Deep mutational scan, measured.
Amino acid sequence: TTITITINGEELRIRGDHEEIHKILKAWEEDHNDEEIVRLIRELAER
């Protein structure tokens, strides 16, 4: 699965399995701050 998210003008492409993507979207849905979401995404992007 690949998704693209733009946060603060920075486009981040994430490839991951369903569970990893779900974790990010769940954090977003629960209204975590952008920095935390960006950190989760970067961790995935670095793999």
Score class of each variant (00 low, 15 high):
Thr2Ser: 09
Glu29Tyr: 11
Ile24Phe: 04
Ile21Thr: 03
Leu44Tyr: 04
Arg13Lys: 15
Ile3Asn: 02
Glu10Ile: 10
Val38His: 10
Val38Cys: 04
Leu12Cys: 04
Leu25Pro: 00
Glu43Ala: 06
Glu19Tyr: 07
Leu40Glu: 04
Ala45Thr: 08
His32Gly: 13
Glu46Cys: 05
Glu43Asp: 08
Arg15Ala: 15
Thr1Met: 13
His18Ser: 12
Ala27Ile: 10
Val38Thr: 08
Glu11His: 15
Ala27Phe: 07
Asp34Phe: 15
Gly16Cys: 08
Arg13Ala: 07
Arg15Val: 15
Asp34His: 06
Leu12Gly: 00
Ile41Glu: 00
Trp28Thr: 02
Val38Leu: 14
Glu20Lys: 07
Thr4Asn: 05
Glu29Asn: 06
Leu12Ala: 03
Ile24His: 02
Arg15Tyr: 14
Glu46Pro: 02
Glu43Tyr: 02
Glu36Lys: 10
Ile21Tyr: 03
Ile24Ala: 03
Gly16Lys: 02
His18Thr: 13
Arg15His: 15
Glu11Ser: 12
Ile41Asp: 00
Thr6Met: 14
Ile21Arg: 01
Ile7His: 02
His22Ile: 09
Arg42His: 06
Leu12Val: 10
Arg47Pro: 06
Ile21Phe: 04
Glu19Cys: 06
Lys23Gln: 09
Arg13Pro: 05
Thr4His: 08
Trp28Val: 03
Ile7Tyr: 02
Glu10Lys: 13
Thr2Asp: 09
Arg47Ile: 14
Glu11Phe: 07
Ile3Phe: 02
His18Val: 10
Thr2Gln: 07
Ile37Lys: 03
Ile24Glu: 00
Trp28Ala: 02
Glu30Tyr: 08
Arg47Asn: 11
Leu40Asn: 04
His32Glu: 10
Thr6Asp: 04
Thr6Ile: 15
Gly9His: 04
Lys26Thr: 10
Trp28Met: 11
Leu44Trp: 05
His22Met: 10
Leu44Glu: 02
Leu40Ile: 14
Arg42Leu: 12
Gly16Glu: 03
Asn8Ile: 02
Arg15Gly: 06
Asn33Arg: 05
His32Ile: 09
Ile5Phe: 02
Glu30Arg: 08
Ile24Tyr: 02
Gly16Val: 07
Glu36His: 14
Glu20Gln: 10
Lys23Ser: 06
Glu46Met: 05
Lys23Asp: 11
Asp31Lys: 11
Leu12Tyr: 09
Ile3Gly: 02
Ile14Val: 07
Ile24Val: 04
Ile7Met: 06
Glu35Pro: 15
Glu29Asp: 09
Glu46Asp: 11
Thr2His: 15
Arg39Phe: 02
Glu43Ser: 09
Glu43Lys: 08
Glu20Thr: 14
Asn33Val: 15
Ile14Pro: 01
Trp28His: 03
Asp17Ala: 11
Val38Asp: 04
Ala45Gly: 05
Glu46His: 05
Gly9Tyr: 03
Asp34Ser: 14
Arg15Glu: 14
Glu46Gly: 06
Leu25Thr: 03
Ile3Ala: 10
Arg42Tyr: 05
Asp17Cys: 05
Leu44Gly: 01
His32Thr: 11
Glu19Ile: 11
Ile7Gln: 01
His22Asn: 14
Arg13Glu: 14
Ile14Arg: 00
Ile7Arg: 02
His18Trp: 13
Glu36Asp: 13
Leu44Ala: 04
Asn8Met: 09
Lys23Thr: 06
His18Leu: 13
Ile24Met: 07
